[in-house]
Design a protein around this nucleic acid. Structure first.
Lengths: 196, 196
DNA sequence: GTCTATAATTGGATAGAC
DNA sequence: GTCTATCCAATTATAGAC
């Protein structure tokens, strides 16, 4: 396929998304201009509209990709046959790792929900709900097995996810503790919190 | 003291702060204009600058007031002589209650840190750090007493605060569970998470 | 203390050249 | 596919009248 000089669509699209994610995470969706994103990508602002419908649609695409990745990675790594306590530990380690590796996307996905249209918001909420349900299933299995005791499964799932996601607010590689050590400590608290 | 007709400084100041807090929580700091705030208050945009230096200073004032209130209310309610387990339960209930009653301020204080100047950011971070230290002191006392066992006191404090603050993301009065019941369930998980 | 008016800049998005 | 140029609306903040 012939390509005009200056045409680099295959790389401009991903670069646009990467730059937008980084800038939205750093400054907030509303505070970032299309001109800033374009400057980061190395094109003019008008050129961005070859790849997006509008600014809000760009935000939605970033969030949906993040949630799709989360559910796909979890589905690919979850060992469904193991006992509930092992699956819970696996969930905790997966959650910390996945969220640490994509701090910008996590930040944007949690902070910019109010900038979505109602229709787009409903899609993201549905995906988030599906992820919570995965943890709830583990907690229910643990209670059926008798290895866990919880007054309210849904609340426990919310509480554990909030606790694990909170790691992102303070943990930085190269600090006092390694990520593996942080995982160990959180797994210990998670196990105890759901214990009989 | 004589007061000109139309002058209502005593109520415009608080109304400005209340409107700004509500709008910032709903739409985000960068997305809210001074005209929107002024319209909510019932004055013209220019009049707001009698009460604030600039938009960013208004945000800082809101955050500092929130953190000051948090530390003051905690200091007034904390029973320092009780055993650590009782103090921990008290902390959990206080945290859930205080944060639920001021959902807008909590939201703004956690989401808009990036919109502060470095100097203002340092002040807010210091106040947040002081609050975390309060919980750490309880956890250390519990370990000295032998009623708690934790691999890392600082991490445990961060984890518990993230878990408790997470209540704000989903709990609404009038739903499936009362706030008292939610408190009970979280206290149960907090106790178990720090247990020996 | 609040108003009107405005300065100076910036915003998202589009049109048409190349 | 990207550029330049531009439209039009909106922004923060200030000046000066009342």
């Amino acid at each position: 396929m012939a390509r005009k000089p200056g045409s680099r669509a295959e790389i401009t699209g991903p670069r646009l998304r990467a730059a937008a994610l980084r800038l939205f995470a750093r400054h907030g969706f509303a505070a970032v201009s299309m001109r800033q994103i374009a400057a980061e990508v190395g094109v003019q602002a008008g050129a961005l509209y070859q790849y997006i419908d509008d600014k809000q649609g760009l935000l939605f695409d970033l969030m949906r990709s993040h949630m799709d990745d989360l559910l796909a990675d979890w589905a690919a790594s979850n060992p469904p046959a193991a006992p509930a306590s092992a699956r819970l530990e696996h969930f905790a380690r997966f959650h910390i790792r996945f969220h640490h590796e994509r701090a910008d996307a996590v930040f944007v996905s949690y902070m910019e929900l109010r900038n979505l249209t109602p229709a787009h918001f409903a899609v993201i909420e549905g995906l988030r709900r599906r992820y919570e349900t995965e943890l709830e299933a583990i907690l229910r299995a643990g209670q059926d097995e008798g290895s866990m005791a919880l007054p309210d499964t849904k609340l426990a799932a919310m509480a554990l996810i909030a606790m694990l996601t909170g790691v992102n607010t303070w943990f930085r590689e190269g600090g006092r503790l390694s990520r593996a050590r942080v995982e160990d400590i959180y797994v210990d608290m998670v196990r105890k919190a759901v214990g009989g």
